[in-house]
């Protein structure tokens, strides 16, 4: 028996919008720790890891570890039927081949339930060890989204370079080149407007902008984004989900021919 009641149902709606274009089908894993997911895109270039900790739910009952295979496009269709202020409860019985999403309006005058078919997904689970990164950049998530969108109108790849001068995003394409440099800036009114650069040593890596732009669909989940870079590892683009956990995107770099 599984029953997870999330008062801020809009979080789940935003999570689905953030990942449904990157991943088609995925197993949601439910354990005492929380509601989580790890999935790769179809070309195995990017990976998304989601964690919504059990403490973040108003009610969290998970009698035994359960993995539920869902088509994310179908799940998104169902969650779009929930209002932004609705409380969402996810329910499943042991051994059932369906999951139920229950939506309650804030004043309890409307209750809807949507039952979705589960699917068997033979997905590969990757171990992601803790790593020391050469550079970690925290910046406003809207700024990062703007840069990725702007650069993708010029080129297909972005070179992200961190030096003591700041973080530089560069691209080149048929019509020309573009460089955006963000310097550390902590003299801002609100902490989420700051750009903070922690650099152990300079690093420069190249990534496909198509994936970066896909990751920025998580922007509504968090005011800030944290980008971790090391020359021999995939980039990690992390959006913290307030009080609950995170959504992390990992992207393998491109290397010279």
């Amino acid at each position: 028996m599984l029953e997870l009641r999330l008062v801020q149902g809009s979080l789940l709606k935003k999570v689905l919008e953030a990942i449904k274009d990157l991943v088609n089908d995925a197993n949601f894993d439910c354990s005492a720790t929380g509601f989580s997911l790890q999935a790769m895109d179809s070309s195995h270039v990017a990976l998304v890891a989601l964690l919504l900790r059990s403490e973040g739910f108003e009610h969290y009952r998970c009698d035994r570890n359960l993995s539920m295979g869902m088509n994310l496009n179908n799940m998104s269709k169902m969650l779009k039927c929930a209002g932004n202020d609705d409380i969402i409860t996810i329910k499943a019985d042991d051994g059932s081949d369906t999951v139920t999403f229950m939506f309650e309006s804030p004043n309890q005058d409307k209750i809807a339930d949507f039952e979705m078919k589960l699917m068997d997904i033979d997905s590969e689970h990757l171990g992601i060890p803790e790593a020391e990164y050469q550079a970690i950049v925290r910046m406003p998530s809207s700024e990062f989204a703007r840069i990725c969108k702007d650069l993708s109108s010029i080129g297909d790849t972005v070179v992200i370079s961190v030096t003591k001068e700041g973080v530089k995003f560069s691209t080149r394409g048929d019509i020309g080149t573009a460089n955006v440099v963000c310097r550390q800036n902590t003299t801002v009114d609100k902490p989420e407007e700051a750009t903070v650069i922690e650099m152990q040593e300079p690093v420069s890596l190249t990534f496909a902008l198509r994936y970066m732009n896909s990751f920025t669909k998580a922007t509504p989940l968090s005011g800030t984004v944290t980008i971790s870079l090391s020359s021999d590892l995939p980039i990690v683009v992390e959006y913290k989900i307030a009080e609950m956990g995170y959504i992390r995107f990992y992207l393998a770099p491109k290397i010279e021919d």
């Binding site: 790769m40 195995h44 270039v45 990017a46 990976l47 990757l126 995939p234 491109k254 290397i255």
Partner: peptide, 14 residues
């Protein structure tokens, strides 16, 4: 431009 590496080249199946 460039060769796209795969995520599975960095992280192994568990």
């Amino acid at each position: 431009s460039g060769i796209q590496l795969s995520i599975t080249e960095f992280y192994r199946s568990t």
